[in-house]
Each structure stands twice: as C-alpha cells, then as structure tokens.
Nucleic acid binder design. Structure first.
Lengths: 170, 170
DNA sequence: GCAGGCGCTGACCGATCGGTCAGACTACCC
DNA sequence: GGGTAGTCTGACCGATCGGTCAGCGCCTGC
C-alpha cells in the first residue's frame, strides 16, 4: 500500500481495513505509523546491505560483474516493492532512518563501481540503470499480470542493466 | 513542492506559507488543491503533447532519431519537475485527469517507436530510459548544485537515452 | 465622491489524520 | 475457580486536512 499510494497517501485506517483489524490493533502491534513502515522496509534493506558486503569481497575477481548484475536484478525483483518505495519516495522520506540507510547503501553501490572521482557520465549511467530498473519493475502498467512473464522481465533487466554499468569500469 | 514532498505530502497551508499568502488566498486563485496541481502540470503536459505530434511527422526521415533523443532530453530537462511527478507519482495520482493524460502520452512514445507488438525487452529498455532519465534529473543528490553542470548532464543523458532506445527500431 | 469589483484574509466547517487509553474478551497457569 | 498476560476494540484526543464564507481594504471607472 505504501508503494502503491505513497507513505503519506496511506492512512493507518486504510491499513487496518485492509488487514481486517481496527486501527487500534494496528497500533498495538506497531509503535507508530513510521514504526510499521520501518519494520516493513527493514528486511529488504538488511538484505541489500548483506548483498553489498558480499560484493566488495568478489570485487577483486574479474568476471564477477556479470554475476553481480544478475544477483542485483534478482535482489531488486525479490524486493521490488521496497525498491520502488526507496527509489521513488526516498527523497520524500529522507527523515526516516531506515530510508536514509537504504539511500546510503545505494550510494555505496556507486562508489564500489567508480574508482576515484566518478565522472558525470558514469553517475548518470548508474542512476539511469538503478532508477530505471526499479521503476520498470513495479510501475509497469498492468500491475497484476506482470508475474507471468517475470523470467522474461528478469532477462531483459539483466541485459540492460549490465549494458549500462559495464562501461563504468573502463 | 509537489515534486519534493509528493502530492499528498504537500498541504495547501504549506503552499500558502511558501508563497507568502494565506490558504484562503490560494483557494481564491485555484478552485481546489487538485485544480492547482493540474494547472501547475498542464503546460508541461501540453508541451509533451506538442512534442509528440511533431515526432510522428519526422518519423519518416531516417536520421531523425538522434534529433529526437536530443529534443526529448531537452524537453525532460525543461520540465524536469513535472516529469519527476508524472514518473514517480503517476500511478499514485491516476485519478487526476492531467496525470492520466500525461501517462497516455508516454505510452504513445513507446508505440511510436515499436511497430507492431513490442517485445518485453523493448518495453523494458524504453521504460528504463524514461524512468531512469527522469529520476536522475531531479533526484540526483545535491538538489541545489546541479544547475552548474547541466550541460554535462544533458550530454550524458542524450548519450545513454540514445543508446537505450536506438536498438528499438531494429 | 462614490459604487463596484478584485485580491485577500480570519473564522469556521466537517472529515480525517496519527495516536492514547480504559476496558472487554480469551486463553492459559496455578 | 481466580489471577494474569496477550489481543483487540470503541471512544476519544488535539492537530491538521481541504474547503467555504462573510467581510475587509483598495483601486478603478464613472
């Protein structure tokens, strides 16, 4: 619901109704709206962090870039709602700790691929790849019937993301 | 403000305060919050529509694709706030006519570049190009100091967008 | 000089926001 | 059977939401 209608556009009442409980019950299980939001986001952010740690290990080996691309696309697909929220609503929600942490992690992705000072062109390519992939995953028009051809989407994403980030090393 | 904090995240009171007027005065000039939002978005959407009409004319000539890319990136840069809103908040605001119209126009861009049934890969590439470009324009971290190197950003965007959409015709 | 319209405002409206709290209900342990 | 802990809820809170309205001052045309 946060991904679909935005954080501010989703009320606790709507969440409670969708869950079949009262608003009070929602606030019994979660300390606040922001707390609920953070708990919903935390697992995805944690996995992203874990992913990044494993990246720096493999960064030395040469052919790891193709593997990285596939892993990264899979991570995005697994956590596409969280990715959508962080990418699209990230700057809006910059005062929420978990979101800030996630945005910091995304910055780390950039750093790990750009030795020294990144050029504008490099930053643009990486930004287009990340944001574009995140957008395409969730905002692709038929929000329902996208699960069928998910393998096709995965393949296309790996292709285009790989194309966009590969020249970064040169 | 709508681009920065989202439509639902921006109140009429905040708008009035930023403008140095009272909330009543804002609602004197605009019939409602949604009316203000639509009026703010309308010029950009109209220009996008105009751009699309000129595209189909030039579609016959061969080397128009490079020109299209440059023109399109310029259009995005000129209307980057509106583009950011439509791309990032489009699905959230799907009941607002102007937004719906804009999303329809974006679909037309896709159609004009894909004869017959578009493949998933083509759709993905176009989506990544559009969404990625729109994101990178506005959400690039230092929201203030991005105006200096705007030519550099423009160049990089033309490059990457051109690369993403060019193979679509083949 | 005065009548009328325009820009603007504070007071106010009902609805909804996120959040608190006392109590009801159930289930389990002694 | 009598506490006790956990779950859930309706009533309620102050604040804020988008929006209405009567009326204010001011400028302009006659």
């Amino acid at each position: 619901m946060f991904a679909e209608h935005g954080y501010t556009g989703t009320s606790l009442q709507q969440i409670a109704d969708a869950a079949g409980y009262s608003k009070s019950s929602v606030l019994y299980h979660f300390r606040s709206k922001e707390g609920l939001f953070e708990e919903a986001l935390a697992p995805s952010v944690a996995e992203l962090e874990e992913f990044l740690d494993s990246i720096v290990e493999k960064a030395t080996s040469g052919d790891s870039r193709a593997q990285f691309t596939a892993d990264f696309v899979d991570l995005l697909l697994d956590h596409r709602l969280a990715a959508h929220i962080i990418i699209n609503q990230g700057q809006t929600l910059s005062d929420i700790p978990t979101v800030d942490r996630a945005r910091g992690l995304i910055d780390r992705i950039g750093e790990s691929f750009m030795s020294g000072l990144p050029t504008t062109k490099q930053r643009i390519r990486l930004g287009v790849a990340l944001a574009g992939a995140a957008y395409v995953m969730v905002a692709s028009r038929p929000s329902a019937a996208e699960i069928d051809d998910i393998d096709e989407v995965r393949e296309a994403l790996i292709d285009v993301v790989g194309e966009l980030i590969t020249p970064l090393s040169s």
